[in-house]
Write a protein that binds this DNA or RNA. Structure first.
Length: 330
RNA sequence: GCAGGGAUGGUAGAGCGGUCAAUUACACCUGACUGUAAAUCAGGCGCCUUUCGGCUACGUAGGUUCGAAUCCUACUCCCUGCA
């Protein structure tokens, strides 16, 4: 049977502070698109400054402006986070106290894409969460085993070596490929094996083929020295804009220091400072380092993806390839 | 000026006669990534060499010793106490 051509989507990637959000908005306006934020921290309500969240507002938009029809229109969003009159999905919707995951994002994003397509608009994925974007675009199956926090706590107490030996016995195939020093991975692998009684399912190693979509990958590059300068400037500006207050506020609303520290970057080091575990100078220094490290990890990840068209930050550089991509039959 | 203490690789900081090209941390470089992903984790990191190995190094200059980052002398600079 002949299947419909895969729907086209845009995926905009690039290291932190490279200017993804602005590019996405520009392209959305030009090509009637809607943005799906792929950012593992911008999903949370109340985490704004530290995540560089666009200053949007929740609004009724599109078809939903007519409440009667909106109710009837199956699957259509009633409202979205709107910035510069472009709807942004999967942003600012989750309680930061609650656990979210790549798997949930994969589901939510697929739904959002379907919804956008239904309205005849172009889905534009945009964000820095490498693993999350890939999970959506490539559609690889994430083993459907929910986290078992009690088991994890128990395994956490064991050494990586012990965990690795156990995994080798239960699932030699997975053990052969896993990073044997990485407890987090070892624990998850064991979690899957213990829950299902079967080895961790193998997926075909990343061949960068999308299962469900036809993506155009656009990556933003800029010289590392420029990027680093921008990172430091942005950090300074965030601190000035009230970063400490934001974190203190989250703490006051009941988030544990541990949770905050686990968010990383701004949330981690500001938390350490607020607890007086490090000095202010130390905080700024550590932050500068770790944001840069993060940007490098992102680049390492995307280097593997040869589909990405790398462009300079100016939006107009992205217009031509996008136009071509959309015109192409296929 | 006198009395002490110190000078080690990009930085902090161990080592105090051989097993030291030098513990460790940070920075830096490269990489991994199967429901925590801004998380988690690995390798490299004086110079030359694919390996074996060689060369130059622990403030400077000498010395002691089979052998010195480690001991001695002088010098230079730095810190502390007394003046």
């Amino acid at each position: 049977m002949h299947s419909d051509p895969k729907p086209k989507i845009l995926a905009i990637v690039g290291p932190t502070a490279s200017g993804k959000s602005e590019l996405a908005v520009a392209l959305a306006k030009k090509f009637r698109g809607e943005i799906i934020s792929c950012d593992s921290r911008q999903i949370y309500k109340g985490m704004d400054l530290g995540t560089g969240k666009v200053p949007g507002k929740w609004k009724i938009f599109g078809i939903a402006r007519h409440p009667e029809r909106a109710k009837r229109a199956e699957g259509s969003l009633k409202k979205a986070f709107v910035y510069k009159s472009v709807p942004h999905h999967l942003i600012d919707f989750q309680n930061p106290a609650r656990q979210y995951s790549a798997a949930r994002f994969q589901r939510d994003a697929k739904r959002a894409i379907a919804d956008i397509l239904k309205r005849g608009r172009l889905p534009i994925l945009c964000g820095g969460a490498m693993h999350w974007i890939d999970a959506v675009v490539f559609g690889q199956a994430i083993p459907a085993v929910k986290p078992d926090f009690r088991l994890r706590a128990k395994l956490e107490k064991q050494s990586a070596d012990t965990l690795y030996k156990r995994l080798s016995k239960l699932d030699p195939v997975r053990a052969a490929n896993i990073d044997k020093f990485n407890k987090r991975r070892l624990i998850r692998a064991l979690e899957i094996v213990i829950a299902t009684g079967k080895p961790v399912p193998i997926f075909q190693s990343s061949n960068f083929q999308s299962l469900n979509y036809k993506p155009l990958w656009i990556g933003i590059t800029r010289p590392q020295a420029d990027l680093y300068k921008k990172i430091d400037a942005r950090l300074k500006q965030r601190l000035k804009a009230g970063m400490l207050k934001e974190v203190a506020g989250l703490r006051k609303r009941g988030l544990s220091w541990k949770r905050l520290e686990n968010f990383g970057l701004e949330y981690k080091f500001v938390s350490l400072y607020l607890q007086k575990k490090i000095s202010r100078g130390e905080m700024v220094k550590q932050l500068s380092y770790s944001i840069k490290h993060y940007s490098k990890r992102q680049m390492t990840w995307w280097k593997r993806n040869k589909e990405i068209i790398w462009i300079k930050p100016e939006a107009k550089k992205a217009i031509k390839p996008t136009k071509q991509f959309l015109l192409n039959k296929g």
